[in-house]
Computed example of a mutant assay.
Amino acid sequence: MTILVTGARGSIGRRVLDRLHAAGHTLRASSRTPGELGVPAGVDVAALDLNRPRTFDAALRGADKAFLYAEPEGAKELFAAAARAGVRHVVLLSSSTVGDPGAETDPLALHHAAVEDALAASALSATVLRPGAFAGNAFGWSEAVRSGQPVRLPYARAHTAPVHEDDIADVAVAALGAEAPAGRTLTLTGPRSLSFREQIGILAALLRREIPVHELTRQEAVEQMGRFVPAPVLTSLLDQWAASVDRPVTVTDTVERVTGHPARTFQQWAEDHLGAFAQD
């Protein structure tokens, strides 16, 4: 049995690949630039560009299962190629924004919903993963923290329930297993809702020094973040954060139900990656 892992350079895809490799599965890793993957020995490599459907058939040929990212414009063709290849089960990495209030007008939710709709129309056996905010989003603060500068962000009291990327990968691997839960949508969160200030406070406690916070106005955030975040995505993020100021978000028990272990905390994530925030 061959399992295709797309996005094998990404924070989730690489974790999925490494776990499946350690378990002894036959694997194929794909990327737009496969020569840059650096996969473990014995892992097949294929070129797959989510915006170029002509790359789909070769990458999927002979695959029995697949862990997929997708882009709306190529999703229908990607899932059709998977069906032609005889893929028996797909695990799709989507987003919890699809199930949030106001999803029908949210650009980020609509992006992922279009992919989910294409998957549902394909009749492939599938599990859809909808993670909330990644704990790794905190890397965005690392440069300021390392240099002793204030963390500059809008809506500092906005809540997320940051989910550890290892937990997302663990759930994905379980969903690719022999007892893969077909036809299910799994919403993943961390075990606790935390404001951005609380997350920064956890980092400060581990580093044993104060981390100052400078709260940006929305307009300042647009000007600062708009340099590297596409406008529709930025609007979606700012609206989500504004709506969750002083409002804890709903936490799910999905990670524990699927994997059998409690979801990792943000503190565990911070401990795992503390070196990225430590001063030289």
Rank of each mutant, 00 (worst) to 15 (best):
L37F: 11
A120Y: 04
Y155N: 12
H25K: 08
A175I: 07
R88Q: 14
P72V: 04
L17S: 07
R257D: 01
A103C: 04
G183T: 02
A276S: 14
L237R: 03
L119H: 09
G74Q: 05
A114F: 01
G136M: 02
A133G: 06
V233L: 14
P262L: 09
L124H: 13
E271G: 04
L186G: 03
D44N: 04
A41W: 01
L207C: 08
E73N: 10
D246Y: 03
G74I: 08
V115Q: 00
A172G: 09
Q199C: 12
L153K: 08
D170L: 14
A156S: 10
A103Y: 00
L153W: 13
D64G: 15
R257L: 01
S94A: 01
H261I: 07
T6K: 11
T235E: 15
A63N: 12
A126P: 06
A113T: 01
H214D: 08
Q219Y: 07
V255R: 01
L153R: 06
R209D: 11
R52T: 13
L119P: 05
A242W: 02
H89A: 12
A82C: 13
A59Y: 02
R247V: 14
I202A: 11
R192G: 02
A169R: 11
K76E: 15
N137L: 05
A263M: 09
V151Q: 05
E143K: 14
G226L: 01
G183N: 09
A231C: 05
G140N: 07
R157Q: 10
T235R: 12
I168L: 03
Q224L: 15
V249E: 00
T265R: 02
D117L: 11
D117G: 04
V145L: 08
Q224Y: 08
L78G: 06
G148M: 12
P72F: 04
Q199V: 07
S142K: 02
R264T: 13
G260V: 09
E77R: 10
F228W: 14
D57K: 06
T97Q: 00
S11H: 05
G99D: 00
G24N: 02
L119S: 02
V255S: 08
R54H: 12
D280Y: 03
D253M: 06
T235V: 14
W141F: 15
V163P: 06
Q240V: 04
T259Y: 05
L206F: 03
L110K: 06
A46K: 13
T189S: 11
R14F: 13
V233P: 01
H111M: 05
I202V: 15
G42H: 08
R32I: 03
A243Y: 10
A70E: 11
L20C: 12
T33Q: 12
A120G: 03
E116Y: 00
G42Q: 05
H214A: 09
V173N: 07
R209F: 09
V245Y: 02
F56H: 07
R28N: 07
